[in-house]
């Protein structure tokens, strides 16, 4: 198995242990303690997919609540929302992305992840209510959006029969990696040579989205170059970056016309040495630049911190989420 495929398999197998408590407002009998719901959620999936399990687990407590509030018709599935430390979770975003964003901002890991389930006071200003069918459509349209960014059209998806759509959604939600990859392979993407790659970056709670070209002037676009396109490194001390960008004086190419070489071989050797020196110094500059970035930011993709010189097409091929987007989570280190 190739390294990329092995990593992809491990990523798809990643899960987050969850402890889900019922919100205090739902407890009608204070004396009765309700045991929390323990479960595992795949990092690649959506918290939405466990909503029915949560409702089923708290069935008795919810019955009591509904009886006491019989004047209000409550659609449990549509009104369910989860929070972590009173932060409402956008559960139509992949679970791993939510976890990495929130715990990353707080600067530490919370495992198992303790969440609270609510069925009242839905935070309409932050979340929107969504049904199972709507969630499936939302996922598929997000998938089409990423495909459009990849190759500028989705006509080839529309030509597949409706079974393709339902299979893709089912395999994505149930985390059937092999079947999902098999469905995806029908579309024949070649990430290295597509028009652009679909990326989403979450920084300071804000989700941004940009198309990133897999190649730039014939060279592979690397992760740090994609991050530069998002402009988040502007916050780093400019002098630090200028220092690492500037070329040492020893590298400056001699242009004095009076300097002549008697032997053409000497010129060639000198040029080769200069070229080697240039490459070495470029490497040193890049290492310094990476150190600067890593001192200031934590860059996380799929729960891991990939090297900043990872080619973006590789991330798209092996580290994308089932909706086709690469989610890059950036957190400030200085705020901790």
């Amino acid at each position: 198995m190739q390294q990329g495929e092995e990593i992809q398999k491990l990523i798809w197998e990643g899960s987050i242990p969850l402890i889900i408590n019922l919100g205090e407002e739902m407890l009608t009998n204070n004396k009765k303690k309700i045991q929390p719901f323990y479960t595992m959620s795949s990092r690649m999936s959506y918290l939405f997919t466990i909503s029915q399990d949560i409702i089923n687990y708290f069935e008795d407590a919810l019955k009591e609540f509904i009886e006491k509030n019989s004047d209000k018709a409550i659609d449990l599935e549509k009104n369910l929302w989860l929070d972590f430390n009173k932060i409402p979770l956008k559960w139509y975003q992949p679970t791993g992305v939510l976890y990495d964003t929130i715990t990353g901002e707080m600067g530490k890991k919370f495992l198992p992840w303790e969440l609270t389930a609510h069925f009242t006071s839905f935070p309409d200003n932050i979340l929107f209510k969504i049904s199972q069918a709507e969630m499936e459509q939302l996922f598929f349209h997000s998938f089409k959006e990423s495909c459009f960014l990849l190759c500028g059209s989705t006509a080839y998806i529309d030509k597949f029969n409706p079974l393709f759509q339902s299979e893709l959604i089912k395999n994505a939600f149930l985390i059937n990696q092999k079947e999902y990859i098999s469905s995806l392979s029908q579309l024949g993407f070649d990430y290295k040579n597509e028009k652009s790659l679909a990326t989403r970056l979450i920084y300071q709670g804000k989700l941004r989205q940009l198309p990133i070209s897999p190649q730039n002037d014939g060279e592979e676009t690397l992760l740090y170059q994609a991050l530069e396109k998002y402009g988040i490194f502007k916050k780093i001390d400019n002098q630090q970056l200028l220092k690492s960008d500037s070329k040492p004086e020893a590298l400056s190419i001699e242009t004095d016309e009076s300097s002549q070489f008697e032997n053409q071989n000497e010129i060639q050797n000198e040029n080769e040495n200069q070229s080697e020196n240039q490459e070495k110094n470029d490497e040193i500059n890049l290492i310094e630049k990476f150190e600067n970035i890593q001192q200031n930011f934590q860059i996380v993709i799929q729960g891991i911190m990939p090297p900043l010189d990872t080619p973006c097409w590789w991330l798209a091929e092996y580290c994308k989420h089932p909706d086709g987007f690469i989610y890059i989570i950036v957190n400030d280190r200085k705020n901790r």
Partner: peptide, 21 residues
């Protein structure tokens, strides 16, 4: 619908769509 193709999510920003499409 964007590009006569897909329907954007309700919490997607106009800026993101503009930057991409």
């Amino acid at each position: 619908y964007i590009q006569q193709s897909f329907s954007p999510s309700l919490d997607e920003t106009v800026e993101n769509l503009y930057n991409c499409f």
